[in-house]
Design a protein around this nucleic acid. Structure first.
Lengths: 145, 145
DNA sequence: TACGATTCTATTGTACACAATTTTTTTGGT
DNA sequence: ACCAAAAAAATTGTGTACAATAGAATCGTA
């Protein structure tokens, strides 16, 4: 029941490619909408994590978001400049940097809910179905329309 | 049957986040293995496309891979330096740059098949199942082990 | 058949990602 | 209490991504 050797290296057979392309396509949909909030897709994810739980360390944030300090440190500094978060050393452990929302950061949640709801309703559809074919269908929708 | 407004902005509900994280996790698995072939994940995708069809334009390649000239132009120049591809203007239409495999590029296919087969067999499992839960399960596998 | 519109590649600018390394601080064992 | 090992964040270096723009070539049509 093996796929022929020659078929193995076909782009269409690549589950990874489907994931990669869907992910990029989705981010490309999000970014122009998030721009109205002063967010990028990555900073949007950081805000989502912080709205759920505030005052967490950089490494806890990284574990939630699958991002390392090389990505988070400069991003969080930028978000601090925007006035969305505060960065301060943990007094109990000076190695740790704790990230807290500012008032402005907390207030952004309601606007974000309203702004992103149109995209969310599109994505609502994806939460059931069979993986690979649906990813490919999504792929078409994301790039063709 | 709506999800409460507050639930809409939960990270766990984000289909996009699952796609984004799975995609990154997969690329992180591929890259160290592809490194032995002198490829990155992106140049691997370019090679996949060219092994299927050689002598295509930059824009045709971009359509297949969902990449634009801003990504492809510098990447293809690097791959030309590596001796994997040739870039030449189309004589019939000087706007077009045609990308062709070199002998070295064609010969890389067999080695790549052998090198990537272990990953492919892992991914084989994903081609059926239901989307969102399976993405989350994959996510765990990619990052926990 | 000029010439404005379109097509195609290249360039510029901004924003990630992550591996590898470094720096600072804490911890655990003697 | 000392000190090697571990942990946390920051830094460095490389490699994408893509929007916006530029510049050259081609096309369509008045």
């Amino acid at each position: 029941m093996d796929i022929a050797n020659d078929e193995l290296l076909k782009l269409d057979n690549e589950v990874g490619f489907a994931l990669y392309a869907c992910s990029k396509g989705l981010i490309r949909k999000y970014n122009p909408i998030l721009e109205r909030l002063g967010l990028t897709y990555t900073s949007y994810l950081v805000m989502l994590a912080l709205w759920e739980q505030d005052g967490v360390s950089v490494s806890e944030l990284g574990k939630k978001l699958y991002l390392d300090s090389g990505t988070l440190t400069p991003l969080l500094k930028k978000m601090e400049k925007q006035g969305l978060v505060l960065r301060r050393r943990d007094e109990a452990d000076e190695r740790v940097v704790l990230i807290a929302l500012t008032q402005k950061g907390r207030e952004l949640k309601a606007r974000t809910e309203r702004t992103v709801s149109s995209l969310n309703s599109t994505l609502q559809l994806i939460r059931e179905s069979s993986l690979f074919n649906d990813l490919k269908r999504l792929l078409g929708e994301l790039y063709e329309i």
